[in-house]
């Protein structure tokens, strides 16, 4: 049983191929994030699921009912899905109450009102029902948009970059409220974002998209720990790339050999996340540590970002917890957490 199943869907706008043979399923109650750079086709997937675009090839089903295929198009108004827009798309001429009630079929005013207040209550905005959209802050508008999408009790909710219109400080707070409301409603959720941290926060599963295809899908920890490609590794944060050649099932680096499945002689790159590097003062390093010196240090509050130069001239970025401000040029010892080093074939 899937709340949403997308099977082999391709979609083109004119000559531009937006989605190519994409398959994805969302189980009831599950939150799935489509993660990818802008223009990778992730919003098109959302619009196809909502019925705002017609399926050109492949098929889409909601709750095991076929809703989209070539020559089958259940229009969006008959799909019972909720959609939260990037710009929220609140109706400016309607009060919050009427915005949230827009999708409700119930005619009985008492029932309507109860449903509206319940939906607003779930996002902590019951007091704002008489206000108009322009009177609310961005974060409040986003919550109204969520309440409006959830009020008709859809089996599937689609979120299109729902937090990108909010400033960073507000984002975390609204994210909490959103996730809680989604969990409470028990609806299946497909969310689109280009922000890996946001995806990791929200998702049970993440599907990373590139150029219209899913390149890797799995739990957030899976993707972070075991990226299958340079693209996925890079998408989850800054990386260091060390060139090398595979031989005897490993690639040699200054930090010692890193295991790989690549055949001998393959040109490869070892990818190291900045947080996989440990920095110790000179003389404190143990076995496998490498001497380096500090090029720059930027204390960022929770962490410090360092650029370090190795003796062979190559530079590495490191991120360590807490505030740390060594002198520029200070000698340090670097250690690598080998679980966070990945080897990929050089493209």
């Amino acid at each position: 049983m899937s709340a949403l199943s997308i099977e082999g869907v391709s979609h083109a706008y004119g000559a531009t191929q937006a989605v190519s043979g994409l398959s994805l399923a969302v189980a009831p109650g599950e939150v799935v994030c489509l993660l990818g750079p802008s223009g990778c086709g992730k919003s098109t997937v959302l619009r196809l699921a909502a019925g705002l675009e017609e399926v050109q090839s492949g098929r889409i089903a909601i709750n095991e009912v076929l809703v989209g295929a070539p020559n089958v198009h259940v229009p969006p108004e008959s799909r019972n899905v909720g959609l939260v827009f990037q710009d929220f798309a609140l109706f400016p001429h309607l009060s919050i109450c009427n915005n949230v009630g827009f999708g409700l079929n119930a005619r009985d005013p008492a029932v309507r009102r109860e449903r509206i207040l319940a939906a607003l209550g779930d996002v902590g905005l019951a007091h704002a029902e008489q206000a108009f959209p322009h009177m609310l802050s961005g974060g409040e508008q986003q919550r109204v948009a969520l309440a409006r999408a959830l009020a008709p009790r859809p089996r599937l909710v689609l979120l299109d970059e729902p937090f990108s219109g909010l400033d960073t400080r507000l984002r975390e707070q609204v994210r909490d409220v959103t996730l809680e409301a989604l969990r409470k409603s028990g609806t299946a959720t497909l969310m689109v974002t280009h922000d890996a941290e946001e995806a990791m926060f929200m998702a049970d599963r993440i599907a990373v998209m590139r150029a219209g295809r899913i390149v890797q899908a799995g739990t957030p920890i899976d993707l972070y720990r075991h990226p299958s490609s340079m693209f996925v590794a890079a998408f989850f944060g800054e990386i260091n790339r060390l060139p090398g050649v595979a031989g005897n099932g490993k690639v040699g680096t200054l930090f010692g050999p890193v295991p790989t499945d690549l055949p001998d002689g393959t040109r490869a790159e070892v990818v190291i996340r900045p947080e996989a590097l440990g920095v110790a003062l000179e003389g404190e390093g143990g076995a496998g540590t490498v001497p380096a010196h500090v090029v720059s240090a930027h204390p960022l509050g929770r962490s410090t970002r360092l650029v370090l130069a190795l003796d062979d001239g190559s530079r590495l970025k490191a991120r360590i917890w807490g505030l740390y401000h060594p002198a520029i040029g200070a000698p340090v010892m670097l250690a690598l957490d080998h679980r966070q080093a990945f080897v990929f074939r050089t493209d």
Partner: peptide, 15 residues
């Protein structure tokens, strides 16, 4: 009037 207004109305069940 933003395109998403139409889309929002459709998804919320209006023709």
């Amino acid at each position: 009037v933003g395109r998403s207004m139409d889309d929002a109305g459709r998804v919320l069940g209006r023709r």
